[in-house]
Design a protein around this nucleic acid. Structure first.
Lengths: 211, 211
DNA sequence: TCGAAAGGTTAGTAAACACTAACAAAATTA
DNA sequence: TAATTTTGTTAGTGTTTACTAACCTTTCGA
């Protein structure tokens, strides 16, 4: 046990920097509940049951329910960032990178459908301001990667210059979001990677420069 | 007092066909709460306070909270339909009708921002299956009006034929939804009709046929 | 005018919620 | 091995939730 010298002030929030194995298990259990029962199903009781132990045990690993959700969102944001960096920083054409960016995302959510509920559900949005910020951070992360691809495409004349970069991004992100929303409504029944590829192709056709 | 001959079986749901003045007041109060505090703020207690009377009084007008929400959504669906019919069935060009369709919607939500929370919040989605159906009904209503406009535009060669009608509709609806989502995130602070016009124009530019 | 229906009230229900205090066993470390 | 930290338990907290029973007053039609 070491003396708490730096950092100090004993922040009320759970430390997010390093997530323990148990914390990761809890985050995954929370995700499973989210995908099966939605935001309203994500209660401490259900979460403890999913983990196979009692409710107070959860509080050995997280200070509050809010902290569990935020840890999940922060992890998600970091993971998405990590996955998209190699794509964005590659040397391929904007069109290729564009396709890859979304293929990767669809693949990710296909493997972890519960995260789709977390990010695209504004049910979470109103829970607290901190959660709000975390969700916005995820959206910002995606934009961070999408923006340079779109801009480069416009400069090269691959993507249309008839509308601004912001407007292009809006349409692209919107199409992705609605796709995820529909998938969720269908309870993740169909293959999102297949449907996703289709949407990517359509959107790409639309935003390509008119000869 | 008349004998309950037809219809019968005393359905557990509140009659939706004719909404009383008081019921309409309650629906509006519910909308106000939704826009100010979101789905989680919509409690019987808050609703009663907003109406200026006690909680049990609400149950004189609706059987349950679920019924209040559904009445609100049904009213909204009917209202949207009523507003869009004259636009769809007019004799103008697809492009003009397209613009009008969305201008009308932005104008409507600008005047009733609470409904934006109701329709574009999947927080409501998981509350119950009946509510789910009502929200899907609203989406279907919009599609019902948008579809023929897009199709006519494609046949006339105004809108692109490079992607299918369904895909075009997806992109268009998605852009609208995201626009509303952003507006809500901003707590309805900016003028949605102005921003909306801009988005409409961008989307229109994108989906127009390449010469 | 009077009887009943409509629309409020006060007081209370059970259930679900996030969370805590106190204790016990297991794992780790000196 | 003995002390200590970690991680679980049982039992319970107060608050909030949608909703109800019983009663009272106003409105209104026969």
């Amino acid at each position: 046990m070491f003396t708490n010298l730096s950092k100090s002030t004993m922040t009320k929030t759970t430390d997010i920097a390093h997530i323990s194995e148990r914390q990761m298990e809890i985050i995954e259990a929370a995700g499973k509940i989210l995908s099966e029962s939605g935001v309203s199903g994500l209660t401490i009781k259900n979460l403890a049951a999913e983990m196979g132990f009692t409710e107070p045990a959860l509080y050995r690993h997280f200070k509050s329910k809010e902290d569990i959700i935020i840890a999940m969102l922060e992890y998600l944001a970091a993971d998405i960032d990590k996955r998209l960096i190699p794509i964005t920083s590659s040397n391929h054409t904007p069109e290729y990178k564009f396709k890859q960016l979304f293929t990767e995302q669809f693949r990710f959510f296909s493997a972890h459908p519960h995260f789709a509920v977390a990010v695209f559900s504004d049910g979470l949005l109103e829970e607290s301001n901190r959660i709000n910020q975390s969700i916005l951070k995820i959206m910002a992360t995606k934009m961070k990667h999408l923006m340079p691809i779109i801009m480069e495409g416009q400069q090269r004349g691959t993507f249309t210059n008839e509308i601004t970069t912001e407007e292009l991004i809006h349409v692209v992100m919107a199409s992705f979001r609605l796709q995820m929303f529909k998938w969720r409504l269908a309870h993740f029944k169909y293959d999102i990677t297949r449907h996703g590829e289709n949407t990517i192709q359509s959107v790409l056709t639309l935003i390509k420069s008119k000869k």
